[in-house]
Design a protein around this nucleic acid. Structure first.
Lengths: 221, 221
DNA sequence: GAAATAGTGTCTGTAAGACACTATCGG
DNA sequence: CCGATAGTGTCTTACAGACACTATTTC
């Protein structure tokens, strides 16, 4: 006899708690752009690096569990986690039946005040060569792809840049995320209509001063 | 004291099972194209329609749980469920702490042999007006968007059409999924290079016989 | 003035939408 | 022949990439 789905169960013969339940964890690829390189925050877990994560508490949403794990392990708050997918391979955790809901989150490098002995950002290129825990390497790949898709046709949706910013600063950010150089003129033509010109100019920089922009308040994409 | 994440736990002071765990269910938007309309299979659950679903069993993957629920409730097999996202609002199930992993799956209408008293396909337009269970209306929206994205630039990735097929048949399928008419010539120019011409022609149809195509074996997208 | 960066204009290739035309079947 | 559908060609518009040129600052 198998348990009936709640949506199909008018009078379940046994309580939900009579059936075995998995432990549910969250693991988060916390991405940032440091020194023009897209990086992921890794914590040390026994003998190998891993993504920050925690178990889901009772009465807590997945989002709150992610925020709690990042607050505790990285001392940051105010983020917007996005679900990637559930990892459910039966043997993925040797100590029991554990599902992990992989997440992506993003933080400006200047807001990262990490205890360097516990957590540190690593360029995603280098992270690929590390012996990461479980399916964490795959989570990072998913997170990078998801972030690239978010940034492909929008100026800094998360956001990562402090306002106001120049088009050059925006392009440098997009190039770090895309992992490749972008054509300057085409980038400008695509992004400028999506930004709001402040009318001000950058000062104290080398070369001709650049116009400063703000993000245009969300016109629903 | 909070439980440590397994990835950070060398010697956990307590076993995983000492902490409260949620029940985990799967719910699936099973989509099909019937009579030129994109439809979703609904089952009756007490007083309202719902998506087919079940609880995750121990040692079972989410994929297997989805396949089991569709086999039991709709008598179909051999599908490819795709995760959409986890629904985790604390109050979403009145009987306890239940997470639901929403899935999308697709089946050709001719393979649907439903017990009509238990399950039946409903056009997604009409389904929007029904009083569905829990978050099932939102799951359907996610599923439709995901399927549209899968079909936007590929001929028949799932697949839904029996081979061989004409470009007209393929276009009718795409129009049902997209929910709108598509320009005939542009559709042809985009899709024909992605198909393999069988060299055969349709027969017994009205008008000029059309060339018959097969899907080109997956060149990785 | 030299170096560096910002901003703009032009050309080309590609792809989509609109439209029209020809081709080939059943009746 | 007529109606219907298949298949193709052309025009226009939009946009990206490539490239070049001008503009304005710091040093």
């Amino acid at each position: 006899m198998q348990p009936k789905h709640p949506a199909n169960s008018e009078a379940p013969s046994r309580a939900l708690t009579d059936y075995p339940r998995p432990s549910v964890a969250v693991d988060t690829a916390l991405l940032t752009v440091a020194d023009r390189a897209l990086s992921v925050v890794l914590v040390q877990s026994g003998d190998r690096p891993a993504l920050p994560g925690t178990f889901l508490h009772e009465g807590e949403t997945l989002r709150d569990a992610v925020l709690r794990s990042l607050r505790v392990k990285c001392g940051i708050s105010g983020l917007e986690p996005r679900q990637l997918r559930v990892f459910d391979a039966p043997g993925r955790d040797t100590r029991g039946w554990v599902l992990s809901v992989a997440h992506l989150d993003v933080v400006p490098a200047r807001d990262l005040t990490l205890d360097a002995s516990l957590a540190h950002p690593t360029a995603v290129g280098s992270a690929r060569t590390l012996p990461l825990m479980y399916d964490h390497a795959e989570i990072i790949e998913l997170a990078v792809d998801a972030l690239r898709a978010e940034y492909a046709d929008r100026p800094d949706p998360r956001p990562l840049l402090p306002e106001p910013f120049t088009l050059r600063e925006l392009q440098t950010l997009h190039e770090a995320i895309a992992g490749e150089r972008l054509p300057r003129d085409a980038f400008r033509r695509r992004m400028e209509p999506l930004l709001t010109d402040t009318g001000e100019l950058s000062r104290g920089t080398r070369g001709k001063p650049a116009r400063l922009f703000r993000r245009t308040p969300d016109p629903r994409r």
